[in-house]
């Protein structure tokens, strides 16, 4: 079959992406545990196809402040990937990494931004490695770019990017557990349609 749109993914193919999400999140939890020096637990990721509007709602509404981290994927598998992290996630990681607690995004300084980018880099590599391991594809990621602002404004960037690909976007929701704190992490996968076809082909799924 030929994909025109992410909505063309059938349940089996969605399961494949879910499994990539699972392995990626597992890798990410391991990497984060090592980086933060704290065991990190993880709930089973939830994967959904959502419109941009629905993603905004899932993130607490358009004006909710979040951290957005954007990376481009290049090589055998091309596209974009975006991490959307709430304030609690930023708090947990920065607290563990830099030993500073902060209550508000406006308190994050250059060091904090840099640390958040590094966390995103590690998480992105974890997911990308999952795809590489499963398929043997060579994938490069670009240096992450960070933005802390209203969810709606951040989401306008992937929305514009996929507006000519698909009405719906692949949305992965994880929940990380660190000590007694819980933090959600959301990931948007925006692969090129050809890359998605290639991925399914490599895995021998329904082509």
């Amino acid at each position: 079959m030929v994909f025109n749109d992410y909505s063309d993914l059938n349940p089996v193919q969605l399961d494949v992406i879910k499994e990539i999400g699972n392995i990626g999140a597992g890798n990410a939890a391991t990497a984060l545990s090592a980086m933060l020096g704290n065991p990190i637990g993880l709930t089973v990721p939830e994967i959904r196809l959502l419109s941009c509007q629905e993603v905004t709602e899932a993130l607490g509404g358009p004006e909710n402040m979040i951290v957005g981290i954007l990376l481009s994927l290049e090589g055998d598998f091309a596209g974009m990937m975006m991490f959307l992290l709430p304030q609690t996630f930023a708090h947990i990681t920065l607290n563990a990494l830099l030993g500073v607690s902060f209550n508000d995004f406006s308190q994050i300084d250059a060091m904090g931004y840099s640390a958040m980018k590094e966390v995103a880099n590690i998480m992105a590599s974890s997911y990308v490695n999952a795809i590489s391991q499963m398929t043997g594809m060579r994938i490069h990621i670009t240096v992450p770019d960070i933005c802390i602002d209203m969810a709606g404004a951040i989401l306008s960037v992937p929305a514009i990017q996929f507006s000519d690909i698909s009405e719906k976007i692949i949305f992965i929701a994880d929940e990380f557990l660190c000590s007694d704190e819980k933090a959600a992490s959301h990931i948007l996968m925006i692969p090129d349609v050809q890359s998605l076809e290639k991925l399914m082909g490599k895995l021998g799924i329904d082509l």
Binding site: G68, L70, S72, V143, D145, C147, D149, V157, I160, Q161
Partner: peptide
């Protein structure tokens, strides 16, 4: 018309 991410080079959304 803001540029939310500083270093995007992707052709569709660069300077969008």
């Amino acid at each position: 018309g803001a540029q939310m991410f500083a270093s995007i080079t992707n052709s569709t959304i660069a300077n969008i």
